[in-house]
């Protein structure tokens, strides 16, 4: 375990933070789609992609061969999940702001939705940043030359 974390660069921790945010997103988004009254604009596909992104990161981190790709794969699935989520919910904005983009309209917005969207955004941004950063301190040459997110 010590070796596991000891070999990780800052990028890994940024991506890991993104995964934590994704977990929070997952929770709030699931609540939004169930008890939060947002079933109408909730996408199960987005939820599945979100789960895949989390599992992919965790699973790929375990193996040395796949670890360098973990943040990349996570970022791809998370971004796809975010896009699907947006496609599913954009009409909500149309309805919320039916009477204009007002402070009152923001107040009336479903709080689960608002919170999950903020979390989504944060986790996507974090994952994109993480995917660009070195994941492992000492580059190790692996298949196709991908080494700790340090492209040669």
């Amino acid at each position: 375990m010590k070796d596991f974390f000891g070999s990780k660069a800052v990028g890994f921790y940024v991506s890991a933070a993104s995964v934590v945010l994704s977990l929070a997103t997952l929770l709030v988004y699931a609540l939004y789609g169930t008890v939060g009254g947002g079933a109408q604009y909730f996408s199960p596909t987005a939820l599945v992609l979100l789960i895949v992104s989390i599992l992919a990161f965790c699973g790929m981190c375990i193996f040395r061969v796949t670890a360098p790709w973990a943040s990349f794969v996570q970022a791809v699935f998370l971004f796809a999940s975010f896009l699907v989520c947006l496609y599913s919910c954009y009409m909500y904005f149309s309805e919320v702001f039916y009477g204009g983009i007002t402070e009152r309209a923001f107040e009336l917005m479903n709080k689960y939705f608002l919170f999950s969207l903020i979390l989504y955004l944060l986790s996507v941004i974090t994952s994109q940043v993480g995917a660009q950063m070195r994941q492992i301190k000492k580059p190790e040459t692996t298949i196709l030359g991908y080494a700790g997110n340090e492209w040669k």
Partner: peptide, 25 residues
């Protein structure tokens, strides 16, 4: 060039996703 290609690929991939979904909407 490797770094440039990586950044370009990343940025255009994100743009591709945004334009794809945005265009559908």
């Amino acid at each position: 060039l490797t770094v440039v290609s990586r950044v370009l690929f990343h940025v255009t991939a994100v743009l591709f996703g945004i334009v794809l979904v945005g265009g559908m909407i």
